[in-house]
Design a protein around this nucleic acid. Structure first.
Lengths: 243, 243
DNA sequence: TCTTGTTAGATTGTCGACAATCTGCTTGTG
DNA sequence: CACAAGCAGATTGTCGACAATCTAACAAGA
């Protein structure tokens, strides 16, 4: 028989859809860092009860983009310059590892997918859709982590990605100007297709450096002006239950 | 005035306690891999309603030690040899990074804490408490990740640790024999106190190798005999919603 | 005026019940 | 006997209501 592989059926629980909705709202910056999530208000807006909403929020807390204080509320995580720096330096290490693991597994399907994602970035750039530009760039970058055949690495990178996407979106939102139109990923893609693995690893580091540069400057600027002004109830008691 | 710093008050929600209970049950192997968690039964045993229990389970799903299939149930993750291998190889990279970051931050407090945790391992070994032995060994190992001053790294390592602890406990349980009594961490501690960082990094890798060796062999043996026989409802539909 | 105790309102945490879905068995039919 | 349809039981997902806790405003007293 012909081996037809069906795609998985859609998630049927409200919880899963709520997770997707909330995650998108946070990662695109519609929910600002530090902002409190009022359960009753959100559940009424989404036309669901608080039970699946709360379960969804627990997931996002564990995912690292929300933080919860008992009897006080659940908040979008704050973005500190140190967080970005931490994620940045760890990402370097993970990239190096991912490239090393992916290297011997590269095949035609890998190169095709690489080109496909690269094209998606370029299209988003042409259309000046900054949100989509961030998304596609991270997806391009994520290919080496998906291809490395290491589930723990992939999980780790996806967690990192959530934060990175949030940081980038915040950055874009604040500056509100399109990313440079020239293609910053041309060399990256070319090196991943070549035969010089150390060169690819080295470029990945430099490439990240470039992306993070402006972001870090922005975050540091934020901190100098004091914490974000998003309407939050300034939780003072207890500590967030981070993972 | 004298600056007396109070420790944070204990978590007062049932949810937090349930998370701790379940996590411990899983990591010590009281709940076996693949086993299904019946919500009604557990909630009755714990004398709580299903709401906080379900929220706790969502957290543990996101933490990576449970897996959930809509309308089918929530299960303890299965332990495959590949999972162990993945965690193992990534752990090497993280260790190297953690040592590099910790190195310039070492001070007397670090050395004291190092000795304290080392002593805890030795005491657990003397008392032949294998479960505690695993716990303390991982805590000793975790110091470099805590000290590295990188929150993302720490989070990542803690996620890894959960699985490692589960794997080790499973291993111990199956073989039911105490770990070699000789002190395997003596060199590790000594190198962390010394001045040769590359040597410390190198030893960390070798040290992990040693620990994982038997574990990997055991896991591979498991797979050869087919999947675990824990009473599970053999979920066939849908896919687990891993993080 | 500053501090302390009280109270009202709002929000989070928890509960018990109902709805939706799955699994396995039974039953009827060829 | 093979097989499909349908039913019953069990389990998960969701809902609305109540209890516990927090915040902020206000009053009383030193």
């Amino acid at each position: 028989m012909a081996t037809l592989d069906f795609s998985p059926i859609a998630d049927t629980t409200r919880r899963a859809e709520i997770v997707a909705l909330l995650r998108r709202a946070i990662l695109t910056g519609q929910l600002e860092p530090g902002q409190k999530l009022n359960e009753l208000r959100i559940s009424e807006q989404m036309r669901v009860s608080r039970a699946p909403l709360r379960e969804a929020m627990r997931e996002l807390v564990q995912e690292g983009i929300l933080t919860s204080i008992p009897y006080a509320g659940t908040f979008v995580i704050d973005v500190t310059a140190k967080d970005i720096d931490d994620a940045y330096s760890l990402n370097k290490v993970l990239d190096e590892f991912a490239i090393a693991r992916t290297w011997p597994l590269r095949d035609q399907r890998f190169f095709d997918e690489l080109d496909r994602r690269h094209a998606a970035v370029k299209q988003a750039t042409r259309e000046l859709d900054t949100t989509r530009q961030i998304e596609t760039a991270l997806q391009l970058h994520g290919l080496i982590h998906e291809w490395a055949d290491n589930s723990v690495l992939l999980e780790t990178w996806q967690r990192l990605t959530s934060r990175l996407q949030m940081y980038f979106a915040l950055h874009q939102r604040a500056r509100n100007e399109p990313v440079p139109a020239e293609d910053a990923h041309e060399t990256y893609v070319r090196l991943l297709k070549g035969n010089d693995m150390p060169a690819a690893q080295h470029h990945a580091k430099e490439h990240i450096d470039f992306d993070f540069e402006a972001l870090l400057a922005y975050a540091r600027g934020l901190e100098r002006r004091g914490p974000n002004d998003a309407s939050r109830a300034s939780p003072t008691r207890g500590r967030p239950e981070t993972a």
